[in-house]
């Protein structure tokens, strides 16, 4: 039933498992930061230190593994594309993890201020970005070459939301008290927008693995 798996295939499979594990961990971090920011579950923020370490560990380990396989096995064609894409992709994942940590830190600071009317829209934006990350990781799991295009469209929506919320925040006039919450929210939407960008990158790298060319 099973075709004979060579040592090389086994290495690739283990590598893929690690990349997906890292993806699952990052996705989880994103979700935690969302709950921290919008559901006020600040106790989750304490978990982030150890999470950050684990993500970093995966990042370094995968990069090293990729380099080892590249030098020892000298892969060609699709396998070569897979390895080079992985090396880039873990960077994207690691960045998303970093941004998630940023968001929790902001959540802790924001907790002292009354909720801003923009919160609802920002929450939708965060939901959207998370959906994108989930879709691109799914594309990575299934090696779906068409996802790159779809997710690029979704990214446009996040960009629009960013511009809109930015305008609302920037044009606010009746400011009473400190400007810190507005600053924090502007930084938060910036981070969310960057996270969506990285998710798009991941999906596009998957397209590159499958199709062999960048769109």
């Amino acid at each position: 039933m099973l075709e004979r798996t060579t040592y090389f295939q086994k290495c690739l499979r283990r590598l893929k498992q690690d990349v997906l594990r890292m993806g699952a961990l990052v996705e989880d971090s994103f979700r935690l930061s969302h709950q921290c920011l919008f559901a006020g579950k600040l106790e989750l923020a304490q978990e982030f230190q150890s999470r950050e370490k684990r993500i970093d560990q995966y990042y370094r380990q995968i990069e090293e593994e990729c380099a080892t396989i590249l030098t020892l096995q000298a892969p060609v064609a699709k396998e070569l594309r897979i390895l080079s894409a992985y090396m880039q992709l873990v960077r994207d994942l690691e960045r998303i993890g970093d941004y998630a940590q940023n968001l929790t830190e902001m959540a802790v600071k924001l907790f002292n201020y009354p909720p801003h009317p923009c919160m609802k829209e920002i929450e939708e934006m965060s939901d959207f970005a998370q959906g994108m990350l989930r879709k691109s990781l799914k594309a990575l799991g299934e090696l779906d070459g068409t996802a790159g295009e779809t997710i690029k469209h979704l990214d446009d929506e996040v960009d629009n939301a960013y511009t809109k919320i930015y305008q609302t925040l920037a044009q606010q006039r009746n400011i009473q008290g400190a400007v810190e919450p507005i600053l924090l929210l502007a930084l938060a939407i910036r981070d969310l927008e960057r996270m969506a960008d990285h998710a798009t990158n991941i999906a596009q790298r998957v397209s590159y693995i499958v199709n062999g060319h960048r769109d």
Binding site: R13, R21, A24, L137, G141
Partner: peptide, 17 residues
């Protein structure tokens, strides 16, 4: 049925893994 692939390719769940 019959195709064997990594569980994580179908189910992206850190806890289950």
């Amino acid at each position: 049925s019959g195709t064997v692939r990594l569980l994580l390719e179908f189910v992206l769940s850190y806890e289950l893994d």
